[in-house]
Design a protein around this nucleic acid. Sequence first.
DNA 1: TCCTTCGATATTGGATCAAGTTACGATGTG
DNA 2: CACATCGTAACTTGATCCAATATCGAAGGA
Lengths: 222, 222
Amino acid sequence: MTVRGNSEEEVYIKLKNAIRKRYIKQGSQLVEVSLAQQLGVSRTPVRSAIKRLEAEGMVNSIPNRGAFVVTPTSREIEETYQVRMEMECMAARLTAAIITDSQIKELNQLVIDEGQVFDRTNLEGYDVTNACLHLKIAEFSGNSILYHYVKELLDRTRIYLILFDPFFKLEYSPTVDAHQKIVNALAEHSAQKAEAAIREHLQNSVDGLEKVETMPEDYLAL
Amino acid sequence: MTVRGNSEEEVYIKLKNAIRKRYIKQGSQLVEVSLAQQLGVSRTPVRSAIKRLEAEGMVNSIPNRGAFVVTPTSREIEETYQVRMEMECMAARLTAAIITDSQIKELNQLVIDEGQVFDRTNLEGYDVTNACLHLKIAEFSGNSILYHYVKELLDRTRIYLILFDPFFKLEYSPTVDAHQKIVNALAEHSAQKAEAAIREHLQNSVDGLEKVETMPEDYLAL
DNA sequence: TCCTTCGATATTGGATCAAGTTACGATGTG
DNA sequence: CACATCGTAACTTGATCCAATATCGAAGGA
């Protein structure tokens, strides 16, 4: 059962998803042999994938002990959102100045799609479309380094979202409306309005998280 | 000759330094076997170290081809500096608000040390003290996530500096004075002044880089 | 002469093997 | 009964081996 393509990449994606979807709980150890067995590969690609996740701050490695899924403190979460906010505001400012009509159309379409997809039972769908919009804005900034960091920070906060808001207390209107507001600001090339809209949106996100202080111990265990 | 401690960590540091000190030229391939041989270890820790460097954006890996030291374009350099500027300004704003007297003392001492160490022949010394000051400011911001990213961005630009400014056209006064200006602004808790000083300082840095368009082909070859 | 194809070589990627380290529990003693 | 010590088991880390893939050069045909 030799896998043809780069299996390290596949393992990386699968692990990331497993953490994101909470199949692997926070704080639990990533044991190389069992993961390798479960995924039907050797330990080598598993090791590489864990190294990558470590570099991204998703797992925490202790020498001679192993790798553990991070258990972010509320302080770390706030700090991450603070940095993410700054990065995305920077992206919005840049994008507002140079965005084209076709790009505006694209963003508007994303918001519309989001409205369609939105469904309190389809959390995965929401998560994907949301990430897509934020990334597009970063992409349109024209700064590929910035894009890279926005993506990394977005990935981190996506995990927080699922870890600490297990019941996804998301309402339709706030999120989609907030996105529409951002896109509208970009459409009229107003960096100030766009920045304000982003700040408001992300502040609401982090506030929503803080509400859920404790986690049910075995919620959605593997 | 079995190495006692975590040899992956050592390999990582050595490789990073080798790139930083230009023992390994930009664009050249990192061949696992030769590096392993040279460092007296197996391929395994070399592989891990390369993976880490890849995640940090220092090397560029092509599947089934190998890992190469990045050859940043001038555009990428500008983009990196742009992001770094934003992050350091954020740090400065935060720090200006909460910096303590003893921390101010510490920063002032760093600038003094820098003045002592500064010597056109001691580039390594300059590089270290410079990095130290920037990192301290990020540390004092109290945001550990921000610190992490500032450190990563600083590492990137340090490489650019050595790659593209091989003759280190640094004068004493501009750099140390710029640092003093930043510290003074922080000392009077002025976020605005601190931010302005950082922007000016980093803009000068990137401008200094741009002057050197081409590299002597075999400057300081291994 | 130029293009294509085939093969040799170098290098990465994956699997397995060996060793070192840590944690945990059992057992013996005060 | 409590505590220290020793032994064992589980896991990571490093080394080696094998397979797969890409590159480069040479040979042969159009």
